[in-house]
Design a binder for these strands. Structure first.
Lengths: 226, 226
DNA sequence: AAAGCTGGTTAACAATTTGATAATATGGAT
DNA sequence: ATCCATATTATCAAATTGTTAACCAGCTTT
């Protein structure tokens, strides 16, 4: 039921890339890789990862430069940046943190430590981001603050009522909502609409989603199951 | 000016306590000290610090125990916990982070590093303090202090209301702003303007920008997406 | 002072999207 | 087969937004 956290790793050493990404994938993250600074920026833009791990010494653009670029772009305000270095060197440590890095880890890297540090960062960050009422269920994500729905990363557009209806059902997966409940939650208590109206909206949602995640419970109501 | 950030340091070595607290005070923090685990808990309760720095090896109660105590108490939900250790030991590192620590620093401690790490943690935690006056998103840059907007380096002129509207939306990319929110933020609560006024301003911004970075969410509001 | 700007607002209308309903089809249960 | 609840489809009215032009106020220029 967890949101798939996306992590981008940038390092020019292929074996490090491989071993870290192996452990991260095993820990349940969705991982992207880049072999230099330019590729890191490119992939950061296209995949919008939640966390970016940057080696400092990389070709094309070094970790500091990438960090600076990311921090100058408000799109990455909420993105965690972790810097890696071979040097256990105080100066670059401080420089990295001042450029807006969130954490700094010295090589040689222990995958366990890396993962537990990243987990700790997310644990801290989640509650503050947690104002966003986002529902995540498998490939489906529903973000109330953005009125945005994505399926397998691709976003699709729902009209207001459709969105509200899906949001209501998906907020409590498995729970059956009586037609009366749906009416009063989505339409309000004083609005009177016909019985078939709900069906039609359900149908539209099903059509747009492509997958059947809403189950009909005959004589009772509907539930979200996915 | 805001209230100073309160930090509690717990370590049994008096000289370390002294040197760290000296630097923290110099960096503008309000500092409390404790020489063992029990005192740390006591002072944490009475002073409600924003951040607690715990040495792992301490008399009475060690750092892990204190950390565990703090994390079991919801009063300290928002309190940052930084763990210190003499050992550069992976196991206690992970243990500390799993017990709910937010950061972990190995001795010997560099005051500069300590301060920059703490600053980085607070920066993440309090996005309110870091209100950027300049928004950068891809080729678009919006500078509040100069009321200046540039696209791909070329600057273009927005009228006051247009600027304020764009700034509001762009400050939180992706977030949908309800028409009511926009009205109260840009026009103020007591001003009454017609329904179409927002649309017209949105249209002017779109025209001047050339790119479509403002998305309409019908029945809800507008959002900046770029 | 008159004429000319600029920015902000509004009215009027066009274009678009939406939601609700009616009519009809389907499918399972009895 | 019949009944009943839901599914489906098409249609229309209502709601919402886009667009344009006009208006007014305040300020600058002539």
């Amino acid at each position: 039921m967890e949101a798939p956290i996306k992590i981008l790793i940038a390092d020019d050493e292929a074996d490090i890339l491989e071993i870290i990404s192996f452990h991260l994938v095993k820990a349940g993250f969705e991982v992207f890789t880049a072999k230099d600074g330019s590729e890191a920026i490119e992939k950061a833009n296209s995949y919008a990862p939640d966390c970016i791990i940057l080696d400092i010494m990389m070709p094309k653009r070094n970790g500091f430069e990438v960090c600076e670029y990311l921090r100058s772009n408000s799109k990455f305000d909420k993105t965690l940046i972790v810097l890696l270095t071979a040097l256990n060197d105080e100066t670059s440590h401080i420089k990295g943190l001042e450029l807006g890095g969130d954490d700094f880890i010295s090589k040689p890297i222990s995958p366990k430590v890396l993962i537990s540090r990243i987990t700790a960062l997310f644990r801290r960050l989640q509650p503050s981001t947690g104002q966003n009422k986002i529902i995540n269920s498998n490939d489906l994500s529903i973000d109330l603050s953005q009125y945005k729905t994505t399926l397998k990363g691709v976003n699709f557009v729902l009209a207001k009522k459709e969105f509200e209806l899906l949001y209501l059902l998906a907020a409590q997966p498995g729970r059956v909502f009586l037609r009366g409940e749906i009416l009063s939650q989505v339409w309000g208590n004083d609005v009177i609409v016909g019985d078939r109206t709900i069906d039609v909206h359900i149908r539209k949602i099903r059509a747009k989603l492509g997958i059947d995640c809403i189950t009909t419970v005959k004589g009772v109501g509907y539930k979200f199951d996915y």
